[in-house]
Design a protein around this nucleic acid. Structure first.
Length: 464
RNA sequence: GCCCUCAUCGUCUAUCGGUUAGGACAGGAGAUUCUCAAUCUUCAAAGCGGGGUUCGAUUCCCCGUGGGGGCACCA
């Protein structure tokens, strides 16, 4: 069998969202699985709504997700890669004209009301359409049968001629889509189920143009999560844009893994899988038929799982970039070793990189926010003044070289006062971090060092 | 309104006629522990309804119901 050629064909008329990303991913996975070709085609025939900004966003999002294309526009400059270009519809006008000419000559297209219509084969009759409140011309023809790789056989009646060139001279989606797929030799069309009803038109166009139909595979749609409401996920929904996850520095590998699982499974219970494994297992029969609701929580969990196993130096770099982006300059100004220590404490504790600025604030400056509720709670029980006093005394001479040493010192102190470690931990934590959450108090002491730890403990004691 | 499509825990899903209906996220409880996470153990949680077919249906068929999509000189 000849090589698989699939395409992802977005139009730069809006933000790049989760649904588009998943369609792109499934096409990419199928190409990689079969050793085929993945084509990126830009459907920018709608001049009114196109923008370069959105085009840029498509390139950026695709590259961020790691969905590299074998053929398509060159995102970094003019020109294309691939032998079947150009890959932007706005540059293919002559190709559409040539195909239109073919249809015209074959008597399969005609002009009416300034537009050009595709002519279906069969006996014509007039009927009044109640819903549209007008008389329409119908054509008697056998139903179109689509043999869909995911849906099975789908029958649909296509019984009205339809416009292929608007009166302004521009071709419509159905026409350019089919012409491009023919001329780019696309073998498998993997796209959202929202196109299933259009497919009968496309099949007729293939026939009209004397081309063989590709294999169709209509994948289920991604719906809003229950919190978002009802219906198909749209660009307006919160959490629907790829850009958002990119800005929050989610790990693309986690997002890709999550997206792959939305409507597909590899046949067993495994969910978290390396991309290579997904590529190996991915196939069209493994794709579900029912729509899936997007679950932000599960995505967050996936991201955490990937974050946890990230090599420390990668995490550190990611953190540095994010903190720079968020203009947390105090963090970037710290010594490399100190920065690394803080990151080592943070990596196992946070779920996403964007928690980092708040999670680590007290490491960068002595002027950090204090959680009043946590403060009241920590100070409200026992004898915080005495505990702080004892702690200051003990820490003045303590060994700060390891967590264990600090822990020993505090435990020793606690035993001497017939108290527990916790009696010191709570008040120490609020004193040096301003919060009641975070890494272990011993490691916070160690990383902050004796000077800062003592200064903060004293400052807090004085405020009581 | 017409056409297409889908239907298992709250959510994502496994099961390809015979299972104590499994896993994951979220939720509850517990363990661990210096807090919070993580981790481990554990609990609760599902076959939309009605007809068939069959010795036997979550699984196959039909009818409802419900969800989703499409019906443009948008893509």
């Amino acid at each position: 069998m000849s090589q698989v050629r699939v395409r992802f064909a977005p139009s730069p008329t809006g933000f790049f969202h989760i649904g588009s990303a998943r369609t792109a991913l499934f096409n990419w996975l199928y190409a990689r699985h079969t050793g085929g070709v993945f084509i990126l085609r830009i459907e920018d025939t709608d001049k009114e709504r196109n923008s370069d900004e959105f085009l840029r966003l498509i390139y950026d999002s695709m590259r961020w997700l790691g969905l590299d294309w074998d053929e398509g526009p060159n995102p970094d400059g003019p020109g294309d890669r691939g032998a079947f270009g150009p890959y932007r519809q706005s540059q293919r006008a002559d190709i559409y004209q040539a195909h239109l000419k073919k249809l015209l000559e074959a008597g399969r297209a005609y002009e009416k009301d300034g537009a050009i219509w595709f002519k279906l084969l069969g006996e014509r009759y007039e009927v009044f359409d109640e819903h549209r409140k007008k008389t329409v011309t119908k054509v008697k023809s056998p139903p179109v049968v689509i043999d869909d790789q995911i849906r099975g056989k789908v029958e649909r009646m296509e019984d009205e001629d339809f416009v292929i060139f608007r009166s302004d001279g521009n071709p419509v989606f159905h026409f350019v889509n089919v012409v491009d797929d023919i001329t780019m030799k696309v073998t498998h069309i993997i796209r959202g189920e929202d196109h299933l009803s259009n497919t009968s038109k496309h099949v007729r166009l293939y026939e009209g143009l004397g081309a063989k139909c590709p294999v169709f595979a209509h994948i289920p749609l991604i719906l809003k999560s229950p919190e978002m409401g009802q219906g198909k996920m749209s660009k307006r929904d919160k959490g629907a844009l790829i850009e958002e996850y990119q800005q929050r520095d989610f790990l693309p590998s986690a997002l890709v893994n999550y997206l792959a699982l939305l409507g597909w499974n590899g046949g067993d219970d495994r969910e978290k899988m390396p991309l290579a494994e997904i590529v190996k297992l991915f196939d069209l029969p493994g794709v579900n038929q029912s729509n899936a609701k997007f679950d932000v929580k599960k995505l967050a969990h996936m991201n955490m799982a990937y974050l946890l196993e990230l090599p420390a130096d990668k995490f550190e770099q990611l953190a540095r970039d994010y903190l720079a982006k968020q203009k947390v300059t105090a963090a970037l100004a710290t010594e490399a070793a100190y920065f690394r220590d803080v990151m080592q404490l943070s990596q196992p504790k946070i779920k996403a990189i964007d928690e980092l600025p708040a999670y680590t604030a007290y490491f960068w400056s002595d002027d950090y926010p204090v959680d009043d509720k946590a403060r009241a709670k920590a100070v409200g029980k026992g004898d915080p003044k005495s505990r702080l006093g004892e702690l200051i005394a003990a820490m003045t001479t303590a060994d700060f070289s390891s967590d264990g040493a600090i822990e020993e010192t505090i435990k020793h102190l606690a035993t001497a006062q017939t108290l527990g470690f916790g009696d010191y931990q709570a008040v120490a934590r609020i004193a040096v971090t301003g919060t009641n959450t975070g890494p272990s108090i011993t490691s916070i002491f160690r990383v902050l060092g004796r000077e800062r730890t003592l200064a903060r403990l004293k400052r807090f004691l004085a405020s009581l």
